[in-house]
Simulated assay, not measured.
Amino acid sequence: MEPQAVTPEEVDTAETATALAQAPEKPGNLTRLKLSALGNRPYRCPEVIPAWWKLRSTHSSVSGLFDTLHLVRRERSQQNKAETRGRLHSDAQDLLRAAIVFTSAGVDASVQALIEHAVPVLITQPGTPRDKYETFVEEQARAPKVEDGFLAALKSQDPRPELLSLYVLSKTKASFQGSGDLKTRAASSLGITNQQIHKGRFTSLDVFFTARNDVAHRLDMDNVTRADAAPPRKLRAQEEVRSMCDEALLLVRDLIKETAVNLTACR
């Protein structure tokens, strides 16, 4: 049964885009991109809830972009009365780029929230998180020029929460610049071991972070070769983008779940 025609006004809403993307279609006509399900969040671990909801929100937003991509391509196919094949149109490419940027923002927001709420509990017990915190304090105290914020924390009536706040800020104030940064700045401070999440899971995100930087900093434009011509833009394949975004979000999901395990051990 063919889907009913819609008016331009109806297409404007995200709900309509999702409904149309899920409507029946001819087999093999168009590709519908889907992210892997996140499953249930860890229970009885309130520290991970803010990070989990940020992750869920990101998953929903990126899924909505993929639904809209499907709708745009199907509308174009119906207008041309032909199957959509070959290179994606520029508007479809921009939706793929938006999915990369949304995913990256979600990774930053989720992991930063995880660090902010989990680290204060994790450092109460011996282990890697406390070691990382104590190393930070020692490095600040022995620096050739002690920072004003560190001195102010030492002078406060209760230095411990002030020092902890500085430590958490050092881990969360900037976006994650690559897989190595995500592992050393986030996973280590959360006490995530190689047995919990193998280092290969992190290095496999190098392609994603490269794509994020290409889109966010250069709009996917190649180097300009002629002054009188628009620079060519890198073309993104649908499945490649879906796979990159999916892999990044699933790694954040597992960071949250394994952090919950470590938090439970601190109770």
Rank of each mutant, 00 (worst) to 15 (best):
31 T>L: 15
261 V>S: 08
102 F>M: 12
250 L>P: 08
30 L>A: 07
122 L>W: 03
228 D>P: 08
46 P>C: 10
46 P>H: 11
62 V>K: 00
203 T>V: 07
188 S>G: 04
67 D>R: 06
219 L>S: 12
236 R>I: 02
76 R>D: 12
152 A>H: 04
26 K>N: 08
70 H>K: 12
115 I>F: 02
120 P>F: 04
43 Y>T: 14
43 Y>S: 15
15 E>C: 04
54 K>W: 00
151 L>M: 13
33 L>M: 11
99 A>M: 06
93 Q>M: 05
77 S>C: 08
106 G>P: 10
123 I>A: 03
3 P>V: 03
6 V>L: 14
15 E>W: 13
174 A>V: 07
55 L>G: 00
96 L>Q: 06
4 Q>S: 12
70 H>W: 12
51 A>K: 00
7 T>G: 13
218 R>K: 14
191 G>Y: 01
34 K>C: 10
167 Y>S: 12
227 A>G: 10
152 A>P: 00
20 L>I: 09
221 M>V: 08
16 T>Y: 03
86 G>I: 05
98 A>V: 03
24 P>A: 10
28 G>P: 06
170 S>D: 14
7 T>K: 14
181 D>K: 00
1 M>F: 14
155 K>H: 14
82 A>D: 11
159 P>Q: 07
100 I>W: 02
238 Q>Y: 02
60 S>H: 10
133 Y>Q: 03
124 T>R: 15
228 D>H: 12
234 K>A: 03
159 P>G: 06
121 V>H: 12
43 Y>W: 11
256 I>N: 01
177 Q>C: 05
75 E>L: 15
108 D>S: 08
6 V>Q: 09
202 F>L: 01
110 S>F: 01
2 E>W: 07
247 E>H: 08
266 C>G: 02
154 L>P: 05
157 Q>H: 12
70 H>Q: 09
140 Q>V: 05
66 F>W: 03
5 A>W: 10
186 A>N: 01
182 L>F: 05
201 R>M: 02
4 Q>C: 07
79 Q>W: 14
26 K>G: 06
232 P>H: 11
31 T>Q: 14
107 V>Y: 09
45 C>F: 09
221 M>P: 09
81 K>S: 13
136 F>K: 08
148 D>A: 15
238 Q>W: 00
